[in-house]
């Protein structure tokens, strides 16, 4: 019985950690499908996290907090879209700076909010203190978890079955051909980048309004980068990315529990294992796939009508 509760606690924590990573990774997947690489995930999560937190502290209105968090991260991503899609500048540079700017800007914005208590919190569907079986764990999750599942199904559907999704894929695979078919490459890429930013914003709001309900500087602690690794892991496919998110979420959940399971480890060293395992997984996966990762062919390459 004791073991069961521990196991369910682990599962619970896995789903919570996985939700955050998954939503951010799903957004990045949409952006990358259009051929735009956005390395600013970490910064966008941070912007979403701080703006959502600020609105929640000031108004106590959860719906508004989520909305503002998503919108501001999306607006922030449009900076990347403007610089890379419209102005054709280097996507790697722009994305990296988006991360640095996002982290410093959010630290600046959130300066007065460090240590503030949250009046509201994103609730769970059904409150169960110590879930004892899988069913109870599944129904006692946070609302964002179910939203994440919905977004997964919706994204997979939109990418495969709708005009927008086919257009996105066409632009990401061969923007020249897409352009000659009359698709608006710039518009598609711009929208995809902003949508990706919105997803990161949602992950950020989830971070501050539920997962760790407070605000400190640099609290994203590399999760944006793990989300980027997750897109590669998932081979740019929503369902496979979800499997990856569960795996990475499991690592994040397992590590602090190792000591309670009787492993004698330094807590400081334990903290770095998820990052180390991410690297190992990335290497093993790349070797296994032999270079055919499933990445959109045009990723990172700016599109010019006149490049003949």
């Amino acid at each position: 019985m004791m073991f069961d509760i521990q196991l369910m606690g682990l599962l619970n924590a896995t789903l919570q950690a996985g939700t955050l990573l998954f939503i951010a990774a799903l957004g990045e997947l949409i952006t990358e499908k259009s051929g735009i690489l956005n390395l600013g995930v970490e910064g966008m999560i941070s912007i979403g996290a701080v703006t959502g937190f600020m609105v929640a502290v000031n108004t106590g209105n959860l719906f508004l907090s989520v909305l503002i968090g998503v919108f501001s991260a999306s607006l922030f991503a449009s900076l990347h879209a403007f610089v890379t899609v419209i102005l054709k500048q280097d996507q790697t540079v722009s994305g990296l700076i988006l991360t640095i700017l996002g982290l410093s800007l959010s630290a600046l914005l959130g300066k007065k909010y460090v240590g503030k208590k949250l009046p509201v919190k994103i609730e769970s569907l059904i409150e169960i203190d110590e879930p004892s079986n899988i069913f109870e764990v599944l129904i006692s999750q946070n609302y964002i978890f179910y939203l994440g599942i919905f977004l997964m199904v919706a994204t997979a559907f939109v990418l495969k079955k709708t005009m927008f999704g086919r257009r996105l894929e066409a632009v990401g695979e061969d923007s020249r051909a897409a352009d000659s078919m009359g698709l608006n490459v710039n518009k598609t890429q711009f929208i995809a980048t902003c949508v990706g930013g919105g997803f990161s914003g949602l992950a950020g709001v989830y971070l501050t309004l539920s997962y760790v309900p407070y605000w400190t500087d640099n609290m994203t602690s590399g999760r944006g980068w793990i989300a980027l690794a997750l897109v590669i892991f998932g081979g740019w496919k929503p369902y496979r990315t979800a499997v990856g998110a569960l795996l990475f979420g499991f690592l994040e959940a397992l590590v602090p529990r190792l000591q309670t399971y009787g492993f004698e480890l330094s807590p400081y060293l334990v903290k770095i294992t998820p990052y180390a395992i991410t690297i190992i997984i990335l290497i093993v996966l790349t070797i296994y796939k032999g270079g055919r990762t499933g990445a959109p062919s045009n990723i990172g390459i700016p599109f010019f009508r006149e490049n003949r």
Binding site: L39, T92, S221, G222, W225, I226, L228, A229, I232, Y268, L269, K271, I272, Y275, A276, T278, I279, L282, I283, T286, I287, G291
Partner: peptide
């Protein structure tokens, strides 16, 4: 193996700082 160096070098920051 052609593993994306952007992500691996970045993740090493967290490892080394943790160390």
């Amino acid at each position: 193996f052609g593993v994306n160096e952007i992500i691996t070098t970045l993740l090493f920051n967290y490892i080394i700082i943790g160390f």
